[in-house]
């Protein structure tokens, strides 16, 4: 049999990129675990079977909307209501994917689009949109799917064994994903004043809208992102027009 050394080298590179992605996902992996355990636990107390709970995390893979769905199921809501609420809540991913579609290397591998886009979460988006290290589709997949494994695994563990973490540790780990967002944002904000201003506008707008309590939380975050990105693109960025 004839060996093709170039082909072998490429294979090796691909798997090492995948592994790099897995390593990069470590903060997400750790941050998901306590949240996923809580979801498994709550799903059990809501009366879902283990199979349903597993499918919830494995097929939907969107934390906040899964918790919301449990609440609505418990309150006896209609399936249609739950699905529409989920659409509104998760529509922010449309904005995130719109940005990522301009930077992901998908031109050569369009068949990967369903797999790459399924793994777009707040956390993976935060990583890809700020870090310059993703480079390849394998890196992206490595990061997305180790986060996915943590989410699905944590859910099943939570359902089967309850809360295996001491309560105080579980509570402290609630800060982990926010620390991740901050760790990704700060270096970008330090480099560019418009970026820093955009983030501040986004945070202030979201806080204000949440405080108003006129719209659902899904709408609040979508509007906050739209407001902040529009203000920055059309007012703050105006001066850099001729760069």
């Amino acid at each position: 049999m004839e060996e093709n050394p170039e082909h072998l080298i490429e294979q090796k590179e691909i798997s090492s990129k995948f592994r790099e992605g897995m390593v990069a996902s470590l903060p997400i992996f750790i941050g998901y675990i306590p949240v996923a355990i809580t979801f498994g636990l709550l799903a059990k107390s809501t009366g879902l079977t283990l199979w349903e709970t597993f499918l919830f995390s494995a097929l939907v893979f969107a934390g906040a909307s899964q918790f919301m769905a449990l609440q609505l199921i418990q309150g006896g809501a209609e399936p249609a209501q739950i699905i529409i609420a989920t659409l509104i809540m998760n529509f922010r991913h449309f904005l995130m994917s719109s940005h990522l579609s301009t930077i992901f290397p998908i031109k050569e591998k369009p068949w990967l689009i369903p797999f790459l886009s399924f793994g777009v979460t707040d956390e993976s988006f935060a990583y890809f949109s700020t870090s310059q290290h993703y480079g390849s589709a394998d890196f992206i997949l490595g990061l997305e799917y180790s986060a996915y494994a943590s989410w699905v695994g944590g859910t099943v563990i939570g359902y089967l064994f309850g809360n295996i973490l001491p309560p105080i540790l579980q509570a402290s780990m609630g800060i982990a994903l926010y620390a991740l967002f901050i760790a990704l944002l700060i270096p970008e904000a330090k480099k560019s004043l418009p970026v820093a201003l955009t983030a501040i506008i986004g945070g202030v707008a979201h806080s204000f809208l949440s405080w108003l309590r006129i719209f659902s939380s899904g709408w609040n975050i979508i509007m906050a992102i739209l407001i902040a990105a529009s203000v920055s693109a059309w007012i703050i960025d105006e001066e850099e027009e001729n760069e």
Partner: peptide, 20 residues
């Protein structure tokens, strides 16, 4: 494109506050 470029910081700001 310009608008899309500002989505990351806008989203991060909104994800951090007030949730954190």
């Amino acid at each position: 494109k310009k608008f899309l470029r500002y989505i990351p910081p806008a989203a991060l700001g909104a994800l951090i506050f007030p949730g954190a």
